[in-house]
Design a protein around this nucleic acid. Structure first.
Length: 310
DNA sequence: CACTTGACCTGTCCGC
DNA sequence: TGCGGACAGGTCAAGT
């Protein structure tokens, strides 16, 4: 489930390994994973050298010296694993790698470089994709036209965050966090973790969130994203970094995949519910709805849905 | 407009 | 043991 921290971890690894590499060969056994025409590949990609590796939202951008870029979305089960010539022949794969000999059953695309090293695009569920585009056109694709700001950008303030979240006043806050056109890069794991950190129930309507709650959520979101990047992201089943290593954030997670276990703050058993069509993990004591926290004990507890109906 | 559902896919797990 | 079905969740498109 690569989200911002996982894609950023891959970017950090690839930006150390790939610049200067010259592409000499490409194979693809699932055309939907890399739908460019063979002619495009032949003229725009073979012989190209990698200049830089960048990230925007959950997308990786590999810039080439041919005024073209590769855009890669890992979706749920995508992996980009680099192997040097030594790792590939003779010495075997590195011992720290979670991934065995490559290519394997899930390998969709293989890039071979002039020095004999390789980059493998593995994707068990085939939802991910790679596309080749003129670099000048990258910012024009639909996704980049509508995607929201980077939550970790230095100039992205709590005020910016609140303004963007409040464009969806009637929606539940988790659905809004997951909406890539509001804020870039947040998926199921960091939505749950940031809401827990801010003590907000994921079904709370945005209209019922105070300035202070949104400020807390902004801080909580940035905190979990930064911690996860520090820990190399979250590996549930599939995710690995550019060298095939797992991320360890999930052992620091407070609620995600911890249903049945005690809340680290209050000890109440964490539960899993369904919100916005996603599995959602909450502490039912810490994360109560806005009304329940602001009305006195003897007043009638109203759910956010009740408020909307009135 | 906001929300839900289905599509894209495969591997895993659960119950029978 | 095998089989059907639910589930996992990023994004888009279509339907309510």
């Amino acid at each position: 489930m690569p989200e911002l921290p996982e894609v950023e971890t891959v970017r950090i690894g690839l930006s150390r390994l790939l610049p200067g590499k010259k592409i000499v060969h490409i194979t693809c056994n699932w055309p939907k994973s890399f739908p460019n025409t063979p002619k495009d590949v032949q003229t725009r990609l073979l012989g190209a050298q990698i200049v830089d590796v960048a990230r925007r939202a959950k997308l990786l951008l590999i810039e080439l010296n041919t005024k073209h870029s590769l855009i890669i979305h890992l979706k749920m089960t995508g992996q980009l694993v680099f192997r040097s010539k030594q790792q590939h022949f003779g010495a075997g794969h590195p011992s720290h790698s979670l991934v065995g000999e490559l290519p394997d059953r899930s390998t969709r695309v293989t890039f071979t470089f002039a020095d004999g090293s390789k980059l493998f695009f593995n994707d068990q569920r085939k939802f991910g994709w790679i596309r080749l585009l003129p670099t000048a056109e990258v910012s024009q694709i639909d996704f980049f036209q509508k995607v929201g700001p980077e939550p970790l950008a230095a100039d992205f303030t709590a005020k910016d965050f609140a303004l963007r979240i409040r464009r969806r006043l009637k929606s539940g806050i988790k659905a809004v966090l997951l909406d890539q056109s509001v804020i870039a890069g947040v998926g199921n794991i960091y939505a749950d973790e940031s809401l827990f950190g801010a003590k907000i129930h994921p079904e709370t309507r945005v209209i019922n969130l105070s300035d202070n709650q949104l400020k807390k959520l902004y801080e909580s979101l940035k905190k979990v994203l930064l911690l996860s990047i520090e820990k190399g992201g979250s590996t549930d089943k599939n995710y690995v970094d550019a060298e095939g290593r797992r991320g360890s954030y999930l052992s620091f997670a407070n609620v995600f995949r911890r249903q049945g276990k005690p809340c680290p703050r209050c000890g109440t058993t964490i539960i899993k519910i369904k919100v916005a069509g996603r599995g959602t993990h909450i502490c039912p004591h810490c994360q109560v709805s806005f009304q329940k926290t602001t009305f006195t004990a003897h007043s009638v507890a109203m759910t956010p849905a009740d408020t909307i109906k009135q």
